[in-house]
């Protein structure tokens, strides 16, 4: 408690009697405890408690109505023979690599290009950042007009004489997942750019000058001066990207709902259709546990690797 008993209190509700002072102090302690514990309890009740419940439900067979029946690890072994699960897992890993990798590369490239003070740079930054404020659903509807069978992309292809390349982009298993990737990137790249721009601010320009004087090329300077100093922000970007990639749901739900024939299914959409809309609450929870394990796993692998690199350096 930080309220000092010794303090001389002034004003109407601070009489000098020490007993009142002590009682005032304990009331202060209660107020302070409420300040911290009320928000803490609310959040724990709606996050950790459900998360623990999910882990338990993942060990049961439950239709949401009859009492759940404990089945051990059955739900997890069932995944091995579930074709849709394998597609969804493969797609999720592919999504993590492509969505994560390309948004980091694109965001870093834009940040490097827009880091130096130049005329008009604020406008460029604002334009690339603008899609970040749209919801994924707004983004999805914008891109749906491009992907429609009679939409803009096919019209453009026809106009330049490539009509045999025109397809139903969101309706064919070969293209659906990649067609979802573009709008997702369009919205994410600006976000990653802003994070890297903040990281670049901390790079000391004097180091660049010194490296230049020593005859380092632009590529060398990027590799040996800029990149190492971007390490702290890179960890943040990676964590944000992995979390965003693995919880991607809106763009898929808004455009394909995982179809056609589960070809654009991600674990998040499969979890939603089986566990939330469907009645396989146990299996759905097991899928959620897999998503959680993938998130934690990817971040831990990165942290361990970068710690090792630091030790080696």
């Amino acid at each position: 408690m930080a309220t000092l008993p010794k303090t001389v209190r002034r004003g109407s509700r601070a009489p000098a009697a020490p007993r009142r002072g002590v009682r005032g102090g304990s009331r202060e302690a209660v107020v302070l405890l409420a300040f911290v514990l009320v928000p803490f309890a609310i959040e724990m009740f709606w996050t950790f408690w459900p998360a623990l419940n999910s882990v338990y439900i993942s060990l049961t067979r439950w239709d949401g109505i009859a009492p759940p029946e404990f089945v051990g690890l059955d739900n997890f072994t069932r995944m091995a023979s579930d074709e849709t699960f394998r597609t969804a897992l493969g797609n999720t890993v592919l999504w993590l690599v492509l969505f994560g990798g390309l948004s980091v590369l694109g965001g870093l490239a834009l940040a490097l290009l827009l880091d130096r003070p130049r005329r008009g740079i604020g406008i460029y930054r604002a334009i690339f950042f603008l899609p970040v404020v749209f919801s994924m659903v707004v983004t999805a509807l914008v891109w749906r007009m491009i992907y429609q069978p009679e939409g803009v992309l096919n019209s453009l292809l026809t106009a330049v004489g490539l009509e045999d390349r025109a397809r139903i982009w969101l309706g064919e298993p070969e293209t659906a997942l990649y067609a979802l990737l573009l709008p997702a990137l369009w919205r994410q790249v600006g976000y990653v750019m802003v994070l890297f721009l903040a990281g670049l601010k901390t790079v000391d320009p004097l180091l660049h000058e010194a490296a230049k004087m020593d005859g380092a090329t632009a590529v060398d300077r990027f590799r040996y001066v800029t990149l190492p100093q971007l390490r702290p922000i890179s960890t943040v970007v990676l964590a944000v990207t992995v979390i965003d990639a693995l919880r991607s749901f809106d763009i898929v739900w808004a455009l394909t709902k995982g179809g056609p024939y589960h070809s654009s299914e991600l674990l998040s959409t499969y979890q939603f259709s089986t566990g939330v809309l469907g009645s396989q609450l146990g299996y759905g929870s097991a899928l959620a546990v897999v998503i959680f394990a993938l998130t934690i796993g990817t971040i831990i692998v990165y942290l361990v690797r970068s710690l090792r690199e630091e030790e080696a350096a």
Binding site: F40, P50, I243, F249, V276, G284, F292
Partner: peptide, 23 residues
Amino acid sequence: ILLLMLAGNLLPAQLLLIPVLKL
């Protein structure tokens, strides 16, 4: 307390959906 609150925020929503719906 602070770290637990941050961690609670980082849990994937999928892990919360079904129990929160029931709650």
